[in-house]
Design a protein around this nucleic acid. Sequence first.
DNA 1: GAAATGTCTTTCATGGATGAAAAACATAGC
DNA 2: GCTATGTTTTTCATCCATGAAAGACATTTC
Lengths: 290, 290
Amino acid sequence: MKDISWESYRIFLDVARQGGLTGAAQAIGLSPATVGRRVLQLEEAIGRALFLRSQTGYRLTGEGQALYERLLGMEAIARGVESWRQEGQGTSTVRVMAGTWVTWLVCENMSAICTGKDPFRLDLSVSERRATLTHREVDVGLRAVEPTEPALISRPAGDVAYAPYRRKNAGDALADRWLAVSEEDAVSAYLRWPHERTGNSVAVIVSRPRSLLDLVRSGAGQAVLPCFVGDLDPDLERAGEEIRELRHHQWIVANSEDRHRRDIRTVSDRLFRLLKSHGDLFAGKRPSRT
Amino acid sequence: MKDISWESYRIFLDVARQGGLTGAAQAIGLSPATVGRRVLQLEEAIGRALFLRSQTGYRLTGEGQALYERLLGMEAIARGVESWRQEGQGTSTVRVMAGTWVTWLVCENMSAICTGKDPFRLDLSVSERRATLTHREVDVGLRAVEPTEPALISRPAGDVAYAPYRRKNAGDALADRWLAVSEEDAVSAYLRWPHERTGNSVAVIVSRPRSLLDLVRSGAGQAVLPCFVGDLDPDLERAGEEIRELRHHQWIVANSEDRHRRDIRTVSDRLFRLLKSHGDLFAGKRPSRT
DNA sequence: GAAATGTCTTTCATGGATGAAAAACATAGC
DNA sequence: GCTATGTTTTTCATCCATGAAAGACATTTC
């Protein structure tokens, strides 16, 4: 049986992402005609319909979606190879993976991590699930559990505390209006907590943790947030005590084989300093700020 | 800058594995001439020499080795896609990942897991490092730590105990002749133990845990082994008490989205029964056996 | 409602990737 | 030392994948 060309996987990913042949063709550097033919071949080889075709573009079918999710992993590794390739070439890219909120904090303080003067680019990817550093998908990761793999080096970066938050002066009207992410997206303990502990009083469900903050600010209800997020927002107040069972440590992790790479080391160090300087906030000690 | 074709990655992997163009060409279904050209292009694109060429074949350079290891991850995912593809086609493959010794036990008891009558093939891969089930590289995994990812379902499968072993009647001559795997390959706690706790009395170093058993049997020294391995071997005896600090639980893990796949469920169940029936052995309770 | 714009798909000529075969070379066996 | 067998590499004709352009069709705009 003839194997499926890996190249068609890459083409498939681009078509799925761009939502059509034209965009994908541009992204890859082929003609739309060819891209269409390759997708057709792939569907033939897989034996399933991957796209819903229309005059306006391509949309993934359910099975297409399933394939897409699997192939994202391949793409991540390919990106890893690409940045490995760049190492010798002068320009380098450091790929950092973190959860929603640490990413948010890093964005707010980007100048502390990477400036125009640095000889590297930063590739920040958000993911609640654990990055597989062993496969080198990313160079630096933030984790809530200490890695056991000896191929990884980790540095403890303090505690993270969680508490429920609501809009200031909202009173107790929101007491049983919890905001949560959908159960299939609830990949961390603090995201699962509302489902497990509030007894079906989840009023609004969103798919991204980031939306929780927006909802709380709009006064739609209360949500569990990391203290460093909630306490930093002048429009929010705690709707209760810290939820101690959610408290966890935090580690900065890197592949030990990359120890020598200066840029990775730099990013890792600066990340460490950033987290350290916000240590009290992370730990929920509520320093008085604006 | 033109991206590197993923197809050349696949070709590279085959050349590296087969050790030459001819074998790879056969494996992929291309001519040696083409394979050679594709490898040349890849080296050109990467900007580094990947192979040492000779009339007798291709050997990886250091950088080639680095690339090879990264790309193994891509291949694992591609295999996952392939077996996903097969699902609809009648014949299916269940991919199981386990450590050296559980794999060994499964091989010894293959008839309990998969027989000729079953409508699926078994794909057993050995790896001491944790399989990334989230990317669906494998369908069923064995782990020493309980997974925190909610996308995974896990089932506790008892305890695993470790002890030092030596050849029977070898006396105390071997007392400080420890056998171990090299430090970079020592990815599990029991493999690191000799390095950390025996104070430089490691006499022989091998790269594969599997070789430890052969060495112990030949009387070359003593080594830490899981009790279910050492106690089952009539030629070995314990060279000391169980090492309690190494004892750990064991979980059978699967991706929860595959819950409905009958064959995966079957393999998982049989694996569970196999481990359960050897529960006392795993826990080091030394039932009297031949 | 007609025109404009954006898709995907088909057609067809072309060129670059491909394989067969030969050449060049190393190794193993006798 | 010579032959046999296995490599890689080169040569060259072929053919298949490719892109340009045209066609078909939906959607948006005026």
